[in-house]
Design a protein around this nucleic acid. Sequence first.
DNA 1: CAGCATCCGACACGATACTG
DNA 2: CAGTATCGTGTCGGATGCTG
Lengths: 132, 132
Amino acid sequence: MTGKEQLATATRLLAYDTFDNRCPLRPIIDQTTSRWATLIISALVAGPHRFAQLHTRVGGISQKMLSQNLKALARAGLVARDVAPTNPPQVTYTLTELGVSLAGPLTDLIRWFGEHGDELLTAQHRYDNQQP
Amino acid sequence: MTGKEQLATATRLLAYDTFDNRCPLRPIIDQTTSRWATLIISALVAGPHRFAQLHTRVGGISQKMLSQNLKALARAGLVARDVAPTNPPQVTYTLTELGVSLAGPLTDLIRWFGEHGDELLTAQHRYDNQQP
DNA sequence: CAGCATCCGACACGATACTG
DNA sequence: CAGTATCGTGTCGGATGCTG
């Protein structure tokens, strides 16, 4: 075992410290919890989607952001991109097993926002009126 | 009951549709699940913190971002800002009841990333080597 | 249909300096 | 100690137009 490998093993045993700014997971977390990625993953929980389906389902997203986020999610191994060799080509996006396992905690979080939306909005309103 | 109020009630009964781009919760969700806010909330789960404590705890955050995020979290009613009238003044940040209830799903999500960090990183590595 | 390329404005963010 | 003010850069993200 080389010194490099030993270091890698030791680091892995320490698990990941998200509070450390050198944590390699941070870019992935940022991307995956970003505005659009959360919605895309939530949408895919219902089943496989085509590009256009996602575009209409996720309200307000641009093609650019959709394609960009799908690429990032595929890179992280959360979404599978399947191309059917038809004409015109049909591309289907599906959650991988890893993606499905992420969808659990993620939809729980989104559900929380739905359940406490009123409290959040009234709190904001109160705050804004309190400080003119 | 006016027509406006009826509409408001109906809308509320439908709950919030996060997929609708007019969903008023979106800005709050974006802010709260943002890079720094997630870490700040996670840090505050351990108990009240002073400004400087948070600054050292959340690695890599600048004073500006910390103050900005704390203000947004206070606005959403997730964090309480308490000032002790001493000299120099001591400011303490604490999760509100609402904040604590959010911390549950949120830390679950972060924990998921910690547990599946290896899979995410190897998936990225594979993806990058596959497409030169 | 499923995108990529390009331009461009708007913030997000960090670094630095300053205040009560 | 706990911020605010200012500046500069980088990236986010939308609009538009084009491809196979």
